[in-house]
Amino acid sequence: MSAGHILTANLLLTGDVVFLTPAGDWSVRADEARFAETEDDVAVLKAAEAKAVAANIVVSTEIIGAEKTQVGVWPTRNREQIRAKGPTVHEAFGNQARFDLSAFEGA
C-alpha cells in the first residue's frame, strides 16, 4: 500500500463527484483516478486542475489524500470515501448503487 494524492471535483453541469483519470478525462469512480505519488505527479494534477477549471468542465476542485492498495486507488479520509461511494444511509444513491465497490468496504 502506498500513500499519495488524487484530484477530485464536481462536474459543473450536474454537480456529480468526479476524479481525474490517467487519460486526463474525468471519471465518477475514485478507483479509476490518476494516482500521484511524487511532487512531480502532484504538479501534473495541479496543471490539470487549472486547465479543467478554465475550461468550465468542473468546479470545487481539490487534491485529496489517497492510497493505492491491491484493489485500487481509494481516498484516505472518511469524508472523501463517502463522496466516492454515496451517502452511507442511502445505498440506492451515489456510485455505490451503480458499481460494485465492495472491495473498498471498510477502506
Binding site: N10, G15, D16, V17, S60, G86, F93
Partner: peptide, 10 residues
C-alpha cells in the same frame, strides 16, 4: 437563489 454545492451534488 438557494443553490449550494454540497458533498455529492448541488
Amino acid at each position: 437563489n438557494g443553490l449550494y454545492l454540497q458533498l455529492h451534488a448541488y
